[in-house]
Simulated assay, not measured.
Amino acid sequence: MKSSVIFGGKVPAEGKAEIKRILEIDKEGGDGTYLGLPECFHGFKQELLNFIRERLQGRFQGWFLKALSQGCKEILLKSIALALPVYAMSVFKLTKDLCDKLTSAMVEFWWSNGSNKKKIAWVAWQRLCKHKEEGGMGFHDISSFSQALLAKQAWRILQRPDSLVARVLKSKYWRNGSFMECGEDLLIPNTGLWDTQKINELFTEEDAASILNIKPMIHKEDRLCWGFTREGSYSSQSGALAVAEQLRYRGIPVERACKACGAEQETICHTLFNCPTARDTWSDAGLPLPERGLSQNSVFLNMHHLVACTKSKDCHTQLR
């Protein structure tokens, strides 16, 4: 039998023996890999996930030795290179540093001439990620794709609460509630404050820091609905590519017009700030707008204005 069982460090020897007897499995695992990931993880997540970069660079090293056309490179990047970290991205959120390094390795491979020497990147990677109809090559943004895959796992847990993985995670993280309420077990009762000690015990240093930076809002009700699909169900595609401009940017044939107003092209800036629905929302919120109005094409300028408003002494406390 090829099956093996993995035990935590705190499981006593007699407990291991009993479990092995019940399962009729004698072999203990933990040192192997599954779909490219180590069976057991220890240490910092960033160090553990470096193997993805090493595998990708190792694959590129073999390809560098061959004189490949741009067409061959395109196929290799889309069908093999981008497929290597998919399982890891479905389990872990890749760090920004790792995403940058993976992107850098792909950029270097794309512009190389087979001599394994760095070449000038004549076109920005963001432009290469555009659809071919818009002058790009249809490559994917790793960071957005990783986030979308993780969100898909969360949606599966919500939709299939009786699945094995959902029951295992529930026993550890939201034993007395639901998946969407699991954060409540990490709060100090009746305070709305994080239980720092518990969070540091349950999560890695990096994840714990991210959680502690979130401000809990315990007095607001939650409702479950994904707003970027007609049926309200989440998909990794809709998670990574939420507006029409971004969908077409990556090769998905959809209408360019905004779904809400039907007039303007559905860009991120239009959806969040310039669509009549968005403008009504900002107006109802009482947010002071710039003298010349919000920018028509710069998300950065509009977000900068919002952040400045929250820091202004003249801004109402509730609006902040």
Rank of each mutant, 00 (worst) to 15 (best):
R21A: 10
A151T: 13
L128M: 08
R256F: 07
G293Q: 13
V11R: 01
C40P: 00
L294K: 03
S144R: 15
L150T: 01
S146L: 04
S144V: 08
F179A: 05
T191R: 03
L272P: 03
Q126G: 10
K259R: 15
E181T: 11
L98N: 02
L187D: 03
A166W: 10
T271A: 08
Y34A: 10
L169R: 06
D222W: 08
A263S: 12
F92M: 03
F44V: 12
S143M: 10
H270K: 08
W155Y: 06
F41I: 09
Q197N: 14
L76P: 13
C182I: 03
T196F: 07
A17E: 14
R230Y: 05
H316D: 14
I218V: 15
E28W: 06
F228I: 02
C72R: 14
R55V: 06
L289I: 09
S104E: 15
Q57Y: 04
P216H: 04
I199E: 01
H219Y: 12
N213Q: 14
H316T: 08
C258S: 02
R279Y: 01
N302A: 01
E54Y: 02
R55W: 05
R223L: 10
Q147S: 13
Q70M: 12
G58V: 07
S90G: 13
E181F: 03
F109L: 06
G71V: 12
C261A: 02
E54I: 12
G36S: 10
L48P: 00
P216L: 04
P288M: 05
L241A: 00
C40F: 00
S171D: 10
A121H: 14
A166N: 10
C225Q: 11
F145K: 09
F64L: 05
D284C: 06
A88C: 09
L68I: 10
